[in-house]
């Protein structure tokens, strides 16, 4: 197992945002976490990425207990996440956005050598920009990009930190249906070509069914089910959560 959580909990006062979740993922797999809004998906991600420390339970990565490692330490170990709300460096160029993230693996404190003189980093930046389809936009200021392009840049920044495991928090948020399909294909492609281990959060089941190796369903902070996409689709409990009886009056 590349990454594992055991009985992990995060309580905010009386609210059990994540409650006793056991989760694990093998090297090279793409696993999705789905659940309705407020199910605890993002909180779970933040426990894995290190933004939050667990109330109980532990996170192990490559056999090591990382429950108390900080976010930048975990990033250096190879756990990287993208943000549900686009988080880029708005006034820097597209190239610099990705290059800066790539630089994090090589140098932080060197104050004399020129940042653009590291040809390995520059090349890697261009490779990543090609992977996410932004190579011809490299000179533009990031804030000028369209919403969809910003979402790709977001993934590019994450890729540049050479993650062993990539946590994607609703990468298709705010995209049109056509863009969503395209982005979904890109994610599967990254997983195949770069042999990346990916955990994907979605609230839209249809996005993940086609591309995931496995799916975990969260509901009110608890794990509801964990199985292959086919079995999850057929699972009655899951259907109840999503088609929930309470929702009927609204859907009419």
């Amino acid at each position: 197992m590349l990454l594992q959580t055991k009985g992990i909990c995060k309580h905010f006062g009386g609210l059990k945002a994540v409650d006793q979740v056991d989760f694990s993922i093998e090297q090279g797999k793409l696993k999705s976490i789905i659940g309705p809004n407020g199910a605890g998906k993002t909180t779970f991600f933040n426990l894995v990425s290190g933004l939050y420390k667990p109330t109980h339970g532990q996170v192990t990565f490559q056999g090591k207990d990382v429950s108390h490692a900080s976010m930048n330490e975990r990033s250096q170990l190879g756990i990287t996440k993208t943000y549900q709300i686009t988080s880029i460096f708005p006034r820097l160029s597209v190239f610099e956005n990705v290059r800066l993230a790539a630089q994090s693996r090589v140098s932080m404190f060197n104050s004399w050598r020129k940042a653009y003189s590291y040809s390995a980093i520059n090349n890697r930046t261009m490779e990543i920009l090609e992977h996410v389809g932004l190579a011809d936009q490299q000179g533009r200021t990031a804030s000028e990009l369209s919403h969809g392009e910003k979402r790709y840049l977001e993934i590019g920044i994450a890729l540049a930190t050479e993650p062993t495991i990539l946590l994607l928090d609703e990468p298709t948020a705010g995209m049109s249906p056509a863009e969503t399909v395209e982005a979904t294909h890109l994610i599967r492609k990254l997983s195949n070509e770069l042999k990346l281990t990916i955990i994907l959060i979605e609230h839209d089941i249809s996005v993940v069914m086609g591309i995931s190796d496995e799916v975990m369903v969260l509901h009110e902070g608890k794990k509801l089910a964990e199985d292959t996409p086919e079995k999850i689709s057929a699972n009655e409990t899951v259907q109840n959560v999503y088609l929930g009886k309470g929702a009927e009056p609204c859907s009419r």
Binding site: T80, I88, P90, L100, M108, N110, S111, A160
Partner: peptide, 28 residues
Amino acid sequence: RILSSPFGHALKGIRENEDRIRACGFDI
């Protein structure tokens, strides 16, 4: 020269988006 270095670029990253630069693994 300092601002053109990897360190100087990291500073710009902090100014632009401190949370993200931390998530990239920089020791803020």
